[in-house]
Simulated scan of single mutants.
Amino acid sequence: MPAGVRLVQKVSSTRVFARIAPHVVPAMDRAVHRLTRGRVLLSAQMLPGVVLTVPGARSGQPRTTPLACMPQPGEGGKDGWILVGSNFGRPGHPAWTANLLAHPEAAVINWKGRDIPVRARLLSGEERAGVWEAALRFWPPYAAYQARIDREIRLFRLDPLEGCDGPV
């Protein structure tokens, strides 16, 4: 693993990062994504990323959030994505997770400049446990995030709706 990645992982595991990052990282991602017409997501230089748009749980208004993701193989050649509701190790669940719970079939992700309608599914039980282990290998700071909080970090699998392609 390159030294730069290890440094970013170490820094992102800190409480200071958890206080600052939620205000800075998404704003920078949104601005760069908009300026490049969906071609560049700044945080995706370190981790794969999507821009999730889903109606708000209460308002019903479209809510757009840049997020790290884990591209995942699916059944029958249909690939998908895993989203981790870590909220940088802060106490509450991130708002986008409530939005996906309220509107699991109304989500759209922008993946590498393409808009893809998806269906979201909250993972639980053995399936969640297996994906959580993969998430810890993928981005070890998730363990520090979970250790700081009492809630279980939500994991979602997003699958393309019929007729839509998954990750390429």
Rank of each mutant, 00 (worst) to 15 (best):
T65I: 12
P91L: 14
G4Q: 06
K10N: 07
W81F: 07
T97Q: 00
R121H: 10
M1N: 14
V24W: 13
A21N: 08
R157G: 08
G125V: 03
S12Y: 07
P71Y: 06
C164Q: 13
A143C: 12
Q72H: 06
A68Y: 00
R30C: 04
S86D: 05
A68I: 09
A95F: 02
E162W: 05
K112R: 15
M70L: 15
D29H: 11
A147R: 12
A18S: 06
Q45Y: 11
T97I: 02
A102G: 03
W139T: 07
A98H: 15
R39I: 03
L35P: 04
G38Y: 07
A107C: 04
P55D: 09
R128Q: 11
E162S: 12
V54C: 05
V5S: 15
G89M: 01
R119Y: 01
Q61A: 13
F138A: 10
A143I: 12
E162M: 00
A129H: 13
A18T: 07
P55L: 08
P117H: 08
W139D: 06
F156W: 05
W139P: 02
Q9T: 06
G89V: 08
L136A: 03
V24R: 10
P62Y: 09
L7V: 14
E127P: 01
D150E: 15
V51T: 02
H33D: 06
G125P: 09
L41T: 01
G4A: 05
V32C: 07
P104F: 11
G130V: 13
G80C: 06
S86C: 01
G89F: 03
R19C: 14
P167F: 12
R154N: 15
P140K: 11
G125W: 03
G125C: 11
S124T: 14
L7Q: 06
L35G: 08
A107Y: 04
V84A: 12
V5K: 15
E75C: 02
W111H: 02
L83W: 04
P62K: 10
E152H: 09
N87C: 09
M70R: 13
G166V: 06
L136T: 12
S12E: 11
P94G: 01
R148W: 00
A135W: 05
P94N: 07
Q45A: 13
R114L: 11
E126F: 13
P160K: 01
L41A: 06
G77K: 00
T14Y: 04
V50K: 09
L67C: 14
A95C: 03
G125A: 11
P117S: 09
A95E: 03
G125F: 07
R63I: 10
N110C: 10
G92D: 15
A107K: 00
L47Y: 02
Q146G: 04
G80Q: 07
S43K: 07
S43F: 04
A129F: 11
D159E: 14
